[in-house]
Design a protein around this nucleic acid. Structure first.
Lengths: 191, 191
DNA sequence: TAGATTGTTAATCGATTAACAATC
DNA sequence: TAGATTGTTAATCGATTAACAATC
């Protein structure tokens, strides 16, 4: 909206865009403060700034990527991180040809140096892009040195320390969602 | 669990693994049938079969990928699709060097042939892996020819026809979730 | 001022959890 | 049989929505 030059937006309009009730929009936002103006709505740039702050994306974060495969490359090249103040500081992988090299300016270290080269004071979170059967061991190692947040991609549940936020974003769940709904529609069409 | 040779599992144990109340497990499953045995729990292989069927993953699905970038390659190489009976039938992209070629045995066509070469009777769903600003137009085109399900990756909301299930899986949301929680923890630590 | 829209309280709705009879 | 655990009903809890005074 900001790019489109929209100045002001109402809960009504926001609700329509996101497919939720306008009250929901107002209620949710009011949990964090009063960002709107009665009679007018919300100023787009202000609202964006507030949400950015709520999410903690107004400050800089440092992160490491574990695993230097195709998926990691997607992230390294995506710009989604830079745009959100998320700096990829280091990559860990066990491929001999990559260790000691740089990928897009980010240096690659061997997995065995993980504990040594990650400092939770510096690196706030980790993206775990290793094969599914290695995810748990990586989380264990990261948890042990005190990393407090991680994102992983695997069709399985994992264990993590109490004070570590671990989020899964495997495509499997969404694929299941799609086929579940499609199945229902097809049956409906047939019935 | 099946791989680990576990025969039987209780709602108690499943709840522990997923971090939810055992009642929740039983209630949710009972929406679709009675898959357990009183006094014993659920038989792992049977439960898996039931869930597979509920999700519609017991039948074969055909899908197309729009966009032949790095992300598409992750999917093409991942095996997550084949494992779930999801067959990638065709890829669409506008890179001249790719059109007419095959990627891992899947043929690539130009974007302009999209309407011509996709038949919703054959292709049930689409993975949209194009730059964010092109996602909406792809959804419009797919919706028009009657594709009923799509998965896309972009930090923006889209419009789709009523009868089309569109799921977003952009990494941005999860990154925001992580920084939101981390921020709270850090403030807590400081306070 | 009249019209619009917020922020918030109250009402509704649905989802989660507890409890327990059924039963393996 | 005694112990365990489901499937389901009832109770609780929380989330969503409606309503409206405040006010721009």
């Amino acid at each position: 909206m900001e790019n489109a030059g929209v100045q002001t937006v109402s809960s009504q309009r926001l609700g329509k865009i996101e497919g939720v009730n306008p009250s929901q929009i107002r209620k949710d936002l009011s949990m964090f403060g009063s960002f709107g103006h009665r009679g007018f709505g919300y100023e787009v740039s202000q609202l964006k700034a507030h949400i950015t702050e709520i999410l903690g994306l107004n400050r800089k974060w440092s992160l490491v990527i574990i695993g230097a495969g195709q998926l990691s490359n997607v992230f390294i090249n995506s710009g989604a991180f830079r745009k959100r103040n998320l700096r990829i500081r280091k990559i860990f992988d066990d491929t001999p040809e990559l260790i000691g090299k740089k990928i897009k300016g980010i240096s690659v270290s061997g997995m065995k140096n993980l504990e040594e080269e990650i400092d939770p004071e510096t690196d706030n979170l980790a993206i775990i892009a290793v094969p599914p059967n290695r995810v748990q061991s990586v989380i264990d190692r990261l948890g042990k040195i005190g990393i407090k947040g991680a994102l992983y991609f695997a069709a399985r549940a994992v264990n993590a320390p109490e004070d570590m936020v671990v989020v899964n974003q495997d495509v499997s769940v969404e694929l299941g969602t799609l086929t579940y709904h499609l199945k229902a529609r097809i049956n409906q069409g047939a019935g």
